[in-house]
Design a protein around this nucleic acid. Structure first.
Lengths: 335, 335
DNA sequence: CACTGCAAGTTTTACGTATAACTACCGGGT
DNA sequence: ACCCGGTAGTTATACGTAAAACTTGCAGTG
């Protein structure tokens, strides 16, 4: 009889069913065929049911040396993008008997390595987004299998990477705007040191350099509507040669540009074209609706988890970039 | 010498430092004063450092029978609201040596009890938001300490609850709109069976019933901009007695009302006043900026974690509601 | 009849840690 | 000479599980 107030253990079940603890473990672990008779197995299952027994996962994890749990590190949850990444990752994980623990890290993982303070050594692997290099080495010091999302394939030594084809998204945006006759561009860049944003800047520069007669200015803003509003207002206040198209690193920045435009008396899209990246719900909430690059966050998460599973099983994590799609709406028009 | 490829254990450290495993445990656990000499302690710390030893948390948790980890169940991460709740909860938790694991449950916890499949028995407690009743009983069957956020204090038998004073928020909204001369109201309600939304409806009804000459219609929509747009368009198309003020269950719904209004040629706020609840970033992204009830998500999370800690320590979880604040912006005007 | 093989279990051990209980030594008081 | 108390450790055990190694009984085989 288990002591009251305590969860029943396999030994309690064994006692109740009149068998050994090992027999219980075999039955519950579904590895009893040819080891325990059908009748006994049923007796064990009955006892387990009436006692309300469920295996202690901590003990199981200690015994097996694995947890079937992975950590997903994301930089922020202020938009639904990383919620989608989680959803995709969790879906694939559960199909393989894995669980996903979510760690939102406003600053990336710092030297304190917060998530590991409570989860460390209870993880089979890590999927990390936009992570600082120091944190990367900290994790690799643990020999913990690691998949990096949207990270410099060159810098993430040895770790598998899964990337969105952001560069192609920028190409599509640029071609779209050039086709509308725009020549003077403003790049409203996220004020964050992260590979995924560096790609945007690099690709835009290269693309425009190839087209004679174009100009490109850059302004930086923290990823927030207010911050973008201020930066855009300043950048758009130059009187001659004001940009006619603003390419934003994400939709929130674009929303800030709308506010700056309104304040400056510039109509979108007649006097100013604006584009974003992400295709958040926000993109269709603002007026006019935002032309943006749709990123498939769930697919991103699925691929990330898939790559981690591959690493865990010793397979080779495939690494083709995930395609993105330009969604043309009302915020872009002829120059 | 630890086998290559394996994490060093306390026994490896003991061997390297020439002491027993127990001594290592004492030193690492900082409970060695009067048990181990300073010199030996230093030798142990040195050995641990050079071997890169960190305690195996799974083993520690098994030994101690607790994990210092709690689960935060949230219904969705599609807005930054629950990100704030997490941030607050995690801050308080870390001050007490606890970690918080986040489980976004699109449907509430189903019969499958997904999060527990991987975390069950590895948790010291649960903080749950808008959870289905069946899930509540499933958790209580585990005797796991539970705090409910924004749940019916009557229905959550025995569990501690922490609530936002939503009813007061609705009162403030109603008084504001009545003061502007509005008499015909539309309540755009979230199509979700959850106590926090029931409170909104009940309070609005009661408040308006007390004021002669007022009318109240109700429309329901799923919590999304598109859904709200459709529902609002239908509800606002009635030609006589059209509502002059729309009270929305949250900011996303309000954004949908903006779109419906635009489609119907109604100007906000001149011909239609609109209010939300939450004060998301979205509220200031749309034009005009949204009058809404600000909810302090981080404080909500802090209080939730505080209550859970109280339960864990056998103290009484205090239960006063968290105040909310009406933020008047440009979306409300004279009737 | 001795031997083999198999079903149906049981006994034992290991995972890595924390800690209760024990030991050994040494200086000092009586 | 003896005990006492404190210091500085060590030994042993338990947490709950999984699984390897062992035991037992019995039917079939040559």
């Amino acid at each position: 009889m288990p002591r009251a107030g305590t969860r029943p253990t396999s030994r309690d079940v064994a006692r109740a069913a009149g068998v050994s603890q090992a027999a219980v473990s075999l039955v519950m672990g579904d590895k009893w065929r040819g080891r325990v008779s059908e009748a006994t197995a049923e007796r064990v299952r009955d006892a387990a049911r009436t006692l309300g027994y469920r295996p202690n996962l901590v003990a199981r994890n200690l015994r097996l040396g694995r947890t079937r749990t992975v950590l997903l590190v994301v930089p922020a949850l202020t938009t639904e993008f990383f919620a989608g990444v989680y959803t995709g990752a969790a879906r694939v994980a559960s199909q393989h008997g894995f669980g996903v623990v979510l760690y939102p890290s406003p600053e990336g993982i710092g030297p304190a390595r917060d998530p590991f303070a409570s989860a460390e050594a209870a993880l089979d692997g890590v999927i990390a987004s936009s992570m600082a290099a120091e944190a990367l080495t900290a994790i690799r010091g643990d020999q913990l299998p690691l998949v990096m999302l949207d990270s410099d394939p060159g810098a993430s030594v040895g770790a598998a990477t899964v990337n969105l084809d952001i560069a192609d998204g920028i190409r599509q945006v640029t071609d779209h705007l050039l086709g509308l006759g725009h020549r003077r561009f403003l790049h409203l860049a996220a004020d964050v040191a992260s590979w995924t944003f560096e790609v945007r800047a690099r690709e835009l520069e290269e693309r425009l350099r190839a087209v004679p007669g174009t100009s490109l200015r850059t302004a930086r803003a923290p990823i927030s509507i207010r911050g973008a509003e201020a930066a855009a207002q300043a950048a758009l206040s130059v009187s001659p040669d004001r940009a006619t198209a603003v390419v934003c690193d994400d939709d929130q920045l674009a929303a800030g540009v709308y506010k700056a435009a309104r304040r400056l008396g510039l109509r979108v899209p007649d006097e100013l074209s604006v584009t974003g990246i992400d295709d958040l719900a926000l993109a269709t909430a603002i007026d006019p609706e935002l032309t943006t690059v749709r990123l498939d966050a769930e697919l991103f998460g699925e691929r990330g988890m898939g790559a981690l599973l591959a690493v865990l099983e010793g397979r080779d994590p495939s690494a083709d970039d995930i395609p993105v799609e330009l969604i043309v709406r009302g915020s872009t028009g002829r120059a």
